[in-house]
Design a protein around this nucleic acid. Structure first.
Ligand SMILES: [Zn+2]
Ligand SMILES: [Zn+2]
Ligand SMILES: [Zn+2]
Ligand SMILES: [Zn+2]
Lengths: 164, 164
DNA sequence: CGCATAACGTTATAACATTACATAAATATG
DNA sequence: CATATTTATGTAATGTTATAACGTTATGCG
């Protein structure tokens, strides 16, 4: 079981998260002989600016603000597609948003836990979830190809604050 | 564990599914003292025309074709919102589509299994999945409010056909 | 270099969903 | 029953997310 929930919801030196993610990305792209171009790298860095999932148009806006010329949707969507293909990012269907994967390189199914209060998301690859889904699928004689498990609720930090 | 996977992927007398669903809906709405207006009823019936999730604009199109005047998005989205609130339908975030709930009235978490080949979706409320999610959440000290579990793959029928 | 492929730029548009405000129907209240 | 209130619907416009189509530039290779 891999999870970044210990760190994602807490105060922490996030620059380390970001730098480590960028380092892993460079390394994996080299390994896979694919190009982590400046655009792709910039998008990934934005996804890692925090543990909050980012919408495509937020990325477009931030990239446009950063550079001189306005960035168009296809540019960003292509970068996102690349990151998704390489397993460097995930798409959260319930939010129409994207998040950097903390465990790229380890092919994994995952569940994501999104805090409704602070917006932070942690990823967990907990085998028991996959196994339970597999068991339910087996009963239905269904062959699983992919899964999306997205949980909303309150993270420990936010739960402490407003405990109504 | 409730599931409609036995029937959803197979040839069956679907009219019975539809009629039963409409009957349950009428009964539940009466019970909850809310109004199953003609628009709402028509939308629900369309969702139950098969076990394939339907997009909002497919509903709009079908309703427009059926009546004389064209139906506008808010009309359908309002009906959908009503059905979601009453637990008569579910939204599938990965598909931007909606499906009639086979087990309304029983408050339940659920997973949905969508066949990539034929598009049919079955719903399963398998406690083991919820328990596993609960366990993962507990480890992260996360308080679960809602969950979306959407699985893609091949149903028994379609698996038999193209077994590559 | 000359070619092939991959990446990017640009315009337009598709697909999904909501806001805002006017009207009508249903229900409650005296 | 009249009328006030609430609930539901009609309508136009717009917001949000994502992709299609096509041309250009950059990169890698023989
Ligand atoms: Zn961090
Ligand atoms: Zn939080
Ligand atoms: Zn059926
Ligand atoms: Zn199928």
């Amino acid at each position: 079981m891999l999870s970044n929930s210990r760190v994602a919801y807490r105060e922490h030196n996030h620059l380390r998260c970001q730098n480590a993610a960028m380092q892993r990305a460079r390394s994996l792209c080299e390994q896979h002989k694919v190009r982590l171009t400046p655009i792709r790298e910039n998008v990934l860095r934005l996804l890692w600016q925090s543990h909050r999932p980012l919408g495509a148009y937020e990325i477009i806006e931030q990239l446009s603000d950063a550079g001189e010329k306005s960035v168009k949707p296809p540019t960003v969507y292509r970068a996102i597609d690349f990151l998704l293909e390489q397993g460097l990012a995930h798409r959260l269907a319930t939010l129409n948003a994207y998040i950097g994967c903390p465990f790229p390189g380890n092919p994994h199914r995952f569940a994501v836990f999104v805090c409704q209060a602070c917006g932070s998301a942690a990823e967990s690859s907990f085998e028991a979830i996959d196994n339970a889904i597999g068991a339910a699928a087996a009963r239905a004689d269904f062959e699983v190809h992919g899964q999306a498990v997205e949980v909303t609720g309150l993270c420990p930090q936010c739960r402490g604050k407003a405990d109504d």
